[in-house]
């Protein structure tokens, strides 16, 4: 290392050479930046523009500026508040399951045991299954009230069968999404645990710390940041769970599984209410941004170290 520094020619390079370099460098970044700016600005500007209009795709001629009428209409629509409530229930409960279980499983899979590599690969597999497939596996083959495996098992035990999507639709969605995302938190938290300092663990063990104490005072504090990152990334995805609901319950029965994303979808592509759906979309953007601010802050701290 020292020799390479010693033989390097005079530092820093001449100013002319550097500016000569920086012009193409900027040109190389430009396409990505311009495309992403367009991707951010154009649809968002359109959404804001539409949100102030009465605009239904079925009667496109009857289009006029209506000020805040769409927001007034949407914000006084009880369905919106129900859907926000359902969104919150979904986000909080799936977060609790995936992070709680994920932490325990990460500790488990950090222990060495025969075939651990294969077991880990099996455990993280659900994350790679496309959402429509996993929703249908659960709906048809596991939770179906007549031929589903769960029903057959409980009936075999003489307990009768549960009609999951009629009686506990939201719980069914929570289970499906948790199954898909538990591997994600497991994978991230396991990676974080493996970067834990072995010496520190040994030292604590020498001092007579019990397994519980080790977990509580050494492992958990180390995982803090990873847990925060998992929580925030998952929140961004859980705010707009769509395919799982689309395939299984279609938002029902009634409004039992209509989350904010599904509500906007119903407004947009079934009622063709462009104005109302845009106003709802902007509410979703604001909600997501509140979460995003925290996420970006924690990523920024770690970038470029």
């Amino acid at each position: 290392m020292t020799s390479s520094v010693a033989t390097r020619p005079q530092q820093p390079p001449p100013a002319r050479a550097r500016s000569h370099r920086s012009i193409p460098a900027r040109l190389l970044v430009a396409p990505s930046v311009i495309l992403l700016v367009l991707w951010m600005v154009v649809p968002l500007a359109m959404a804001i523009w539409f949100a102030f209009q009465r605009y239904n795709l079925l009667i496109p001629d009857n289009r006029e500026f209506v000020g805040f009428a769409n927001f007034a209409y949407i914000l006084t629509d009880p369905t919106l508040w129900i859907s926000i409530g359902i969104t919150m229930i979904l986000v909080v409960s799936v977060l609790a399951i995936t992070i709680g279980l994920g932490t325990v499983l990460a500790v488990l899979f950090n222990q060495e045991f025969p075939g651990r590599g294969v077991a880990r690969v099996l455990a993280i597999s659900p994350f790679f299954v496309m959402p429509t497939v996993s929703a249908l596996i659960w709906k048809n083959m596991l939770m179906h009230p007549v031929n589903g495996l769960f029903a057959q098992i409980t009936r075999g035990l003489g307990l009768g069968a549960i009609d999951w999507f009629a009686d506990f639709p939201l719980l069914a969605i929570i289970i499906i999404v948790a199954w898909q995302w538990l591997p994600f938190s497991l994978l991230i938290l396991l990676t974080a645990i493996q970067s834990l300092d072995t010496d520190q663990m040994e030292a604590a063990r020498m001092d007579g710390a019990s397994a519980m104490q080790l977990f509580r005072f050494v492992v958990l504090p180390h995982l803090n940041r990873a847990i925060a990152v998992v929580a925030m990334i998952e929140t961004i995805f859980f705010l707009t769970i769509f395919a799982e609901i689309f395939v299984t319950t279609g938002g029902g029965p009634g409004l039992a599984t209509t989350n904010l994303a599904y509500y906007i979808y119903l407004k947009a592509l079934l009622e063709f209410d462009v104005g109302g759906a845009s106003a709802g979309g902007l509410i979703a953007v604001v909600l997501a941004n509140i979460v995003a601010i925290f996420l970006m802050r924690s990523v920024a701290r770690n970038l470029d170290t």
């Binding site: 992403l36 649809p43 968002l44 906007i264 947009a268 592509l269 979309g281 953007v285």
Partner: peptide
């Protein structure tokens, strides 16, 4: 770089209507 990552935080459903119409 951070700004690029922040574009990921825009929920798809928020721009469903504009993208559909575009």
């Amino acid at each position: 770089l951070l700004w690029m990552l922040s574009t990921k935080m825009l929920p798809a459903v928020g721009v469903l209507v504009p993208i559909y119409i575009l």
